[in-house]
């Protein structure tokens, strides 16, 4: 019984949210001028910068070129000061390589790569502050950056985590909840078609519980997608005012 109480009897979580509530999501597109697309996103205290370069010609080895579609190139890294305990290297460790690969897979499923044969699209994400749900925040930020770069996608890719405490699914876990033990499921969803671009869960969970957990994660993703859509519309509006239309 020791440790922290993740869900109070009154139904409140550590930070005061209820089980199904997301953290506050705030985002901005076009934060940098030099990149082709960029976005900054906060999901609670998890803060991410994403930039997109491309589509451009394939750099480096020609063998990487795909003749029917664009290569998606991702790099996930974390600022050395982003975690409570300082990290020694921003990237190149096992965990971030895995994350890079997951991002790549996610966006290969979402970006209409066949429109840009023989070219490359770079997606770089940087965690500035980590407080749980790093992967999902990265996906959400990268989605905005890709949109900012004007690269066509099938749909928004929205990601969110969900966990299980006392048989209650919790949406959008913060770091304390993630490290409190138990399962954490990350889902990247293309909300309109209900297609899942990525699904990841490392802990053991009984099959019976998977459905409810998936349901919670997908509902959360849809919540995220609403916020993202708003951000995009807001951004476009500002842009059109600036360009005087």
């Amino acid at each position: 019984m020791a440790g922290i109480e993740l869900l109070s009897d009154q139904g409140y979580r550590l930070d005061g949210r209820k089980a199904t509530e997301l953290r506050k999501v705030q985002a901005r597109m076009g934060v940098f001028g030099q990149a082709d697309g960029s976005a900054y996103l906060e999901q609670g205290n998890t803060k991410v910068l994403a930039v997109v370069y491309g589509p451009h010609e394939v750099r480096g080895a020609r063998s990487k070129i795909l003749y029917d579609r664009a290569v998606i190139n991702c790099q996930y890294s974390m600022a050395t000061f982003s975690t409570a305990e300082r990290k020694r290297r921003p990237h190149g460790d096992r965990k971030s390589s895995e994350m890079s690969l997951h991002l790549k897979q996610t966006f290969e499923a979402a970006v209409l790569t066949q429109l840009y044969p023989r070219s490359q699209i770079d997606i770089y994400v940087k965690i500035l502050q980590a407080d749980g749900g790093n992967y999902s925040a990265c996906v959400n930020a990268a989605t905005l950056a890709v949109i900012d770069a004007g690269i066509p996608m099938r749909d928004y890719v929205c990601a969110c985590t969900a966990g299980f405490v006392d048989d209650t699914p919790l949406a959008d876990l913060c770091h304390a909840e993630e490290s409190g033990g138990g399962t954490s499921l990350a889902v990247a969803l293309l909300p309109r078609g209900g297609q899942i671009a990525l699904l990841q869960m490392d802990a053991r969970l009984h099959q019976d519980h998977l459905d409810t957990l998936m349901e919670a994660a997908m509902t959360a993703c849809k919540g995220v997608s609403k916020v993202l859509d708003e951000v995009v519309r807001q951004h476009l509006q500002e842009m059109s005012i600036l360009t005087g239309e």
């Binding site: 030099q34 890294s77 050395t80 770089y124």
Partner: peptide
């Protein structure tokens, strides 16, 4: 940290 965000 010369991040790839700055330049590919």
């Amino acid at each position: 940290d010369c991040s790839a965000n700055a330049t590919p």
